[in-house]
Simulated scan of single mutants.
Amino acid sequence: MLRTKVLELEKGPAVEMATRSAGGKRHLRCWKTLGWTALLILQMQLTGVSGLKNVRVVSPGAVAVGETAALECQYDLEGAELYAVKWYKGKKEFYRYLPKEDPPTKVFPLPGINVDLSESDAHHVVLRDAGFTLTGRYRCEVSADAPSFDTALVVASLVIVDFPDGEPIITAERSSYAVGEMVRANCTAQRSHPPANLTWSVNGRQVRGRHVRRYPLRRDEGNATTTTLGLEVEAGSGTFRRGRLTLRCQATLLSAYNASAELVIEEERPRLASVLGTRESSSAPAAAASPGAAAASPAAAASPPAASSSSSLPPTALPKTGLFIAAMATVSGYGASVCTFGGRSRLR
């Protein structure tokens, strides 16, 4: 026990001194780190360098298949020097820009990506012959040089599209409808990738809900898809405008495609029968049923008509009122008939 106490007495001061020495070194390192940090902050304030800001990626959103896709990485170094700009598709790097290297650009092979180095720089990367494999998310990583070494990472999406074959096509059951009937039509956008978005409008007002019908997509060759949207609305009394109903179908494909087609439906109205035709058809049977007319001799037909007892006035003394009525009847379309006034024929 005595030996143990002696060892503890001998060991105690040495251990305490060693502990104090190690703690002093740690404190010294901390002070040095704080000092260097303060110097860097002071230098940045004196030189006006505060790091990256306003970093973002500008993407066209949608590009037609076979065309060129240009992505832009915008940033503000606020006076600092650029260290590197790196582009990724997903998690794989395919383009790097290092201003202090010669040449500053470097490409990492990635299937489906064809970088145009002549058009790419510290802010832009240009991809030629866009195929459907280019669809995805793209990241831009910007790093400032010493002393800040600030780094920012931003993301944007790109979609490669195949436009529909021409404008949308509208088909209807008939070209004219009467008030109260159901107007049915279909709108079709042929062969696009991805499927086109279709909307209906009637007389300038968009139609939704139960009035539209979505048909199953039709898969064509390759990645193409044909889209059809149906329309079913009642032709109400206030639907027709000046006897016409305008159907409009609009097809869109992200921000790269916008086309529309229109179809004008005519209003069916009841047709009134011709008064002249009705009188002629009604007088024909009466003439056929008259035996006196059928038995009239040629001599009687050739003889002049006898004068009426009530028509004792000479032809020149015919009242003007009768002539005016006769003219009005003729203009109104009720036909013309022959009347006898004082032995002469007059139209009425």
Rank of each mutant, 00 (worst) to 15 (best):
E78G: 14
G79C: 10
G79P: 10
A80S: 15
A84W: 00
A84Q: 12
V85G: 03
Y88N: 01
Y88S: 07
Y88K: 12
G90T: 07
R96S: 11
E101N: 13
T105R: 11
L110G: 02
P111F: 05
P111Y: 06
N114T: 11
D116A: 13
L117R: 10
L117A: 08
S118L: 11
D121W: 05
A122W: 01
V126A: 08
L127K: 05
L127C: 07
R128C: 05
D129W: 01
A130K: 03
F132K: 07
T133K: 06
T133H: 01
G136A: 07
C140E: 02
C140V: 01
E141R: 11
V142T: 06
V142H: 03
D145I: 00
A146Y: 09
P147L: 14
P147H: 06
S148W: 05
F149Q: 09
L153K: 13
V155K: 06
V155D: 15
A156I: 00
S157R: 10
V159G: 00
I160H: 08
P164Y: 07
P164A: 11
G166S: 05
P168H: 07
I169S: 09
E173K: 14
S175N: 09
S176Q: 11
Y177F: 13
A178L: 01
M182T: 14
M182Y: 09
V183D: 04
A185R: 04
N186M: 08
T188S: 12
A189G: 13
P195Y: 02
A196L: 03
L198G: 04
L198I: 09
